[in-house]
C-alpha cells in the first residue's frame, strides 16, 4: 500500500491542466511550494501555464475548503483537491448550504496519513528530497540526512485515529482507495484527565490558555463549521458579547466559538494547528464531542448530517436531569 502523495503529483497537474483547458473549472485551489520543503502554501491557479507550480507531498496537511467561500457569488466552477478529512469539511459547507455541490469540482486524494511537519522540521534533515512509504514508517530523505520515522510517532494525531482516509465527496480520485482503518482507537483520556481536575485547576488552566489569545481569529477563519455570513464577533458593536482583547472577552470568544460548532465540528483539528499561540482548542471540541457521543448516542458527531445534534431532540429518549 503505497500512499505517497508525490506519486500523484503528475496526475494532479495533468488533470487540472485538462480541466482548465476544457473550461470545466475556472480556477483550482491546491498546494504550492511554501517557505521550505516542510511547509506547502495554498495556491490558486487560473491558467494552464500555472499548473506546474502545483505540488503534492506528504506535508500537505491543511484543508483548503474554506477558500471556496470566496467564490460562491461568482459564476463557474472551482476545482479543489481534498483528502478524506477535507472532504468532511466540504460536506459541512455543502450541508450548511454555503457551497453548492455543482459549483465545485473535487479531485479526491485517498490518504493514509500526513506527516507532522513541525516534528520533522526539528530533526535537521534539511530540504526534503524524497519521502517513501515503508508500511509502518516513512523514510524521509533530506539533503542533510535521512531518517526512518515511525508513523505512530510522526503523523498528525488526527491521522492516527482517522477513519476517513478516502474522500467522501469526489468527482475523480487520484490513485486507488486506501484501506480505511484507524491506526489506533479514538481515545478521550486527556479530556477525562481534565474533567477529573478540581475546578480551581481547570479554571487556572483555561485562564492560562485564554489569556494568551491574541484574537487573530485564525481558528475561526480556517474552521469549515464556523461559516456564518456575518460573525457575531465581526459586528462593530457586539453589545454584551464583547470583542476586545481582554481575558473575560477571550473566555467569551473561545466559549462561543467552541459552542457554535458543537455537534457541527468535523474534527479536522485545523483551529488548533493554525493557532499562532498554540492554544489547545481541540480540547474544547473533543470535550463536546465526547459528551455528545455519551448523551445523545451519536457515535460519529463529526460526520456532517442534514440535522445537527443540537438542532434536534428525542422527547422520550434524551436524558432527563433537570426534573
Amino acid at each position: 500500500m503505497s500512499a505517497i502523495f508525490t506519486d500523484h503529483q503528475a496526475a494532479l497537474r495533468d488533470e487540472v491542466r485538462k480541466l482548465l483547458t476544457d473550461g470545466t473549472i475556472k480556477g483550482f485551489i491546491g498546494y504550492a511550494r511554501g517557505r521550505d520543503s516542510y511547509h506547502p502554501a495554498p495556491a490558486i491557479v487560473t491558467r494552464p501555464d500555472q499548473v506546474d507550480g502545483l505540488i503534492l507531498d506528504q506535508f500537505c496537511i491543511f484543508g483548503l475548503t474554506k477558500y471556496l467561500l470566496d467564490y460562491i457569488f461568482e459564476d463557474g466552477k472551482m476545482g479543489i483537491v481534498a483528502k478524506g478529512c477535507d472532504s468532511l469539511a466540504l460536506q459541512r459547507l455543502i450541508t450548511d448550504h454555503r457551497v453548492s455541490r455543482d459549483k465545485v469540482h473535487v479531485i479526491g486524494l485517498p490518504c493514509a496519513g500526513v506527516i507532522n511537519a513541525e516534528k520533522v522540521a526539528q530533526l535537521g534533515l534539511g530540504n526534503v528530497q524524497k519521502v517513501t512509504d515503508k508500511g509502518a514508517s516513512f523514510l524521509v530523505e533530506g539533503d542533510k540526512g535521512s531518517r526512518e520515522l515511525a508513523k505512530t510517532e510522526y503523523l498528525w494525531d488526527k491521522c492516527l485515529w482517522c477513519e476517513h482516509h478516502n474522500p467522501a465527496v469526489a468527482d475523480s480520485k487520484l490513485g486507488p482507495e486506501v484501506e480505511n482503518v484507524a491506526m489506533k482507537p479514538r481515545d478521550y483520556s486527556d479530556i477525562e484527565a481534565m474533567e477529573n481536575l478540581p475546578p480551581a485547576e481547570k479554571a487556572a488552566y483555561w485562564t492560562r490558555q485564554f489569556s494568551r489569545c491574541i484574537r487573530c481569529y485564525a481558528c475561526r477563519n480556517v474552521c469549515p463549521a464556523c461559516n456564518c455570513r456575518e460573525c457575531v464577533f465581526d459586528i462593530a458593536d457586539p453589545r454584551w458579547v464583547g470583542n476586545t482583547v481582554k481575558l473575560s472577552e477571550q473566555q467569551m470568544f473561545h466559549f462561543t466559538r467552541a459552542w457554535h460548532v458543537a455537534g457541527r465540528c468535523v474534527d479536522c483539528g485545523e483551529c488548533e494547528r493554525v493557532c499562532p499561540m498554540e492554544l489547545p482548542l481541540m480540547k474544547l471540541q473533543h470535550k463536546l464531542q465526547k459528551d455528545i457521543v455519551k448523551l445523545f448516542g451519536n457515535p460519529k458527531p463529526f460526520e456532517p448530517s442534514e440535522v445537527e445534534v443540537l438542532g434536534q431532540f428525542r422527547a422520550t429518549e434524551d436524558p432527563e436531569e433537570f426534573m
Binding site: 481534565m194 474533567e195 475546578p199 480551581a200 485547576e201 481547570k202 479554571a203 487556572a204 488552566y205 483555561w206 485562564t207 473566555q251 466559549f255 467552541a258 459552542w259 458543537a262 474544547l284 470535550k287 463536546l288 459528551d291 455528545i292 448523551l295 443540537l310 434524551d318 436524558p319 436531569e321
Partner: peptide, 11 residues
Amino acid sequence: LLATRFIEYLG
C-alpha cells in the same frame, strides 16, 4: 445537558 458539562469543564 451539553452546556452544563462544558461550563463545568472550563472550571
